[in-house]
Design a protein around this nucleic acid. Structure first.
Length: 476
DNA sequence: ATGCATGAGAG
DNA sequence: TCTCATGCATA
């Protein structure tokens, strides 16, 4: 919607982050008008929310004014994300409008950012290395796909090692910073050496390492290299099973995978096979059956990167086989007998109205607590488990959207090492910044005082929220 | 093609 | 408990 989504311009105005969000019904909801005074006590109507849910939302509005980013403020259990310390020269600063309330960026934020900002493709040098800059400066450097991806993997507070995200390479702040175009540099020990298997030696990228030492700057600092063409074409000789960590396996970039996926479809159709046939065929030949769903998602590039990488060699092998062997081609359907039918809960039909309500809840808080789910369950007249699963699936959907977005927007992938989260020390250590994660807090607990926004200076505001954090949440 | 559901693995 | 890979059922 706007290119300054995460830019300095307008930062500090948290409202920018919520305007214009469109739900899946195509209706606008939760739009917070810029004309309203900050932290108004008046509940705003929620357009796009069905009448039966209006009072519920409005009631929550009293606790969490709509001017705040709505998904963290409109429910009392969603405590505000506070900006404790600004990133030097960047990030989010206070304005005269009142305390800055910064929420932790979600996958949706990243998606929106990536959609709103064209990212240049760039490999400035022949050896896939970026020049090291002496100080972090915003520039037109591309988003580092694997950093964003890495962040995406870190989004769940339940997956994080600590409930506090420090301002370090993997923090949301660093991600946004990178997304803004800043060169993100970290101490050497933040990088793992790429394993030999990850080194690409294709013609366009002669470098044997994707991490380079920069001579002109602090020796300890290194920069991430990137190059769209610097992707390995190695394939897996062995069919992987189970989870695949994107390491030592197929290193195809998203664009390569997408190309292969489209190719798969072409090859399949040329032989007159259905997606089901492919799945069955994998079962027949390799005792490794997949459903039509999975084949479909593969062809559409709707699986996770790791998942795509995992399936690529298997499917490739099968295609090669059936293309060259009439006998193999003939036994495709034998794989069908490998189908496993278990007793399965009848699929719940969720009404459109309820869905839009759930969407609004998700927008407010993607990780509802137990009591949240109970509440939502009660309100929506759906089982607890149905709600829980719905949120799980919704999160998965978001991740897929992010993957898709990254696929379109970013450059080289996977050929450089992942940042290691800790320790964050040394010359290039990022300043620490405590970032409460609102959905960790169960503000519906009996001993909590309902969150009330204030117009005071941020000190009071922050303290108010900080008091809610368990000991050890804040470090300096 | 996609929504709800399952189960394995990890924290 | 969550995520992730996966699939039945259905739009």
């Amino acid at each position: 919607m706007h290119n300054n989504f995460f830019s300095n311009q307008g930062v500090g105005d948290a409202r920018l982050l919520t305007n214009g969000h469109e739900n899946h019904q195509g209706k606008m909801h939760g739009v917070t008008g810029l004309g309203h005074p900050p932290y108004s006590q008046h509940a705003q109507p929620h357009h796009g929310i069905e009448p039966e849910y209006q009072d519920f939302i409005q009631k929550d509005d009293r606790l969490c004014p709509p001017q705040m980013p709505n998904y963290m403020t409109q429910l009392p259990h969603c405590a505000p994300m506070l900006q404790i310390q600004n990133m030097p020269g960047h990030g989010f600063q206070n304005t005269t409008l009142g305390p800055v309330v910064q929420r932790r960026p979600t996958i949706e934020d990243l998606v929106q950012y990536l959609k709103s900002t064209p990212q240049p493709n760039a490999c400035n040098t022949n050896n896939c290395e970026q020049p090291l800059m002496s100080s972090p400066k915003p520039s037109q450097t591309p988003v580092y796909e694997n950093q964003v991806q890495y962040y995406a993997n870190q989004v769940s507070p339940h997956q994080a090692a600590s409930p506090v995200s420090m301002n370090r390479p993997t923090s949301p702040q660093a991600m946004i910073y990178a997304a803004q175009g800043g060169q993100v540099m970290y101490p050497m020990h933040h990088y793992q050496k790429p394993s030999p298997a990850t080194i690409s030696t294709d013609g366009s990228c002669t470098s044997t390492s994707t991490i380079s030492t920069a001579g002109s700057c602090t020796p300890a600092a290194r920069t991430i290299s990137m190059d769209a063409s610097c992707t390995s074409t190695s394939t897996i000789s062995q069919v992987p099973t189970g989870r695949v960590v994107s390491d030592d396996k197929d290193k195809s970039s998203m664009s390569e995978l997408e190309k292969f996926a489209q190719d798969t479809k072409r090859r399949r159709l040329r032989m007159g096979f259905t997606q089901e046939n492919v799945g069955d065929g994998l079962g027949a030949l390799y005792n490794n059956r997949f459903s039509q769903t999975t084949v479909c998602r593969f062809e559409a590039g709707q699986l996770s990167l790791a998942n795509m990488r995992k399936l690529k060699p298997i499917i490739n092998k099968w295609l090669d086989e059936v293309e060259s062997n009439a006998v193999s081609r003939a036994i495709v359907n034998d794989g069908e007998k490998l189908k496993i039918y278990g007793k399965r809960k009848r699929r719940t039909f969720i009404q459109a109205a309820t869905k839009s309500y759930l969407e609004s809840c998700y927008e407010q808080c993607p990780h509802p607590t137990k009591s949240d789910i109970e509440r939502i369950s009660e309100k929506s007249k759906l089982e607890y488990e149905v709600i829980r699963i719905w949120f799980c699936n919704r999160r998965q959907k978001s991740k897929k959207e992010l993957d898709k977005c990254l696929k379109e927007k970013t450059v080289a992938f996977g050929n450089f090492a992942q940042p290691i989260p800790a320790p964050n020390t040394g010359n290039w250590a990022m300043p620490s910044m405590a970032v409460p994660q609102p959905w960790l807090l169960d503000m519906t607990a009996s001993n909590h005082t309902p969150y009330m926004a204030t117009n005071n200076q941020n000190g009071q505001f922050i303290q108010h929220a900080m008091q809610r954090m368990p000991p050890g949440y804040y470090t300096q």
